[in-house]
Design a protein around this nucleic acid. Structure first.
Lengths: 160, 160
DNA sequence: CATTATTATGCATAAATATACAATATTAAC
DNA sequence: GTTAATATTGTATATTTATGCATAATAATG
């Protein structure tokens, strides 16, 4: 059903430009673009599109296309890269040293950070204090050394 | 009035751990932590805290502490850094070359990108195609050269 | 202190969003 | 094609969130 995809694309486009505060407002804007649907449909579209509802500083909540991936997708991406780009993993005390192919380290580190900050229900990654990355090396600093094996398994995707 | 600050701190802490889907749920969790308030108060707190309401992939919407700054704050930050760290600005055609103090370039470039992607109602930054940064140089690529002076003014904060 | 100004909160309710269910449309299988 | 299975949407409504107004709590001022 292509109308749906088209409409959702249009919604994304609108939300990039306009300051949309309610689904009713969006409904009107959409109608102007030729898509005539009810609020109920928009409610469903929003969820599917991953649209977030965020407060403008000192302003009202408004709808906004999310640029940040949410938890599960990042995790998938990260584990995918692990299998492709990681050359070696070593550890001492509460540190994990991950050797990657050239240029991959900082991108992967960012994903790890993102996950540790935004990961929901992932107790593993909450144990990560932070990461530092060079060009082909990631240093992961843990809050506590006991959880290191669990984390390594998790990052590798052994525990899906 | 400290109870409010305390409560909001507690809210932030709860949202980091728990998957909170409604304000009622939060109300209960909060009560368990000793803060007894109505849903109305929570609604206000959420906005003040900048909590966003985001859909979990294939799951329901849930409340989530925002890690990404929203528009106006970024802009302020960026203009602040401009005044402190920018050494020189030059341009040719549709390119702007910004020379900064060592190490500042990539951070500032990220802010510019963030703004150009998430900026609401800021037509100026929408004209930015992208940025590339080294250690002390930012290259800003514009969609169109006619808007360059406007952008430069904007970044400098001359147009607040 | 007492008094005034400011901020925070609850109550009641308005406004907005999500959803169960029924009706339609779309796609797949034959 | 026809029929069965799946997906999309609207209607009506339940659920949830936001807010106007009144009150209480806190802070500022003399």
């Amino acid at each position: 059903m292509k109308t749906k995809k088209l409409r959702q694309g249009q919604i994304a486009k609108i939300l990039e430009k306009e300051f949309v505060v309610t689904q009713h407002q969006l409904q009107k804007l959409l109608a102007r673009a030729g898509h005539r649907v009810t609020q109920a449909t928009l409610s469903r579209d929003m969820k599917e599109l991953g649209v977030i509802y965020a407060p403008a500083p000192h302003g009202p909540y408004y709808y906004k296309i999310s640029t940040v991936q949410t938890g599960p997708l990042i995790q998938q991406d990260l584990q995918n890269r692990f299998s492709k780009y990681v050359v070696n993993i070593s550890r001492t005390d509460n540190l994990i040293l991950i050797k990657t192919l050239p240029g991959e380290a900082s991108g992967m580190a960012r994903l790890i950070d993102e996950l540790s900050m935004n990961g929901i229900k992932q107790t593993e990654v909450k144990e990560i204090l932070g990461t530092i990355a060079g060009d082909d090396t990631i240093l992961v600093i843990m809050k506590n050394k006991v959880n290191i094996p669990k984390i390594i398994k998790f990052l590798k995707g052994t525990t899906p």
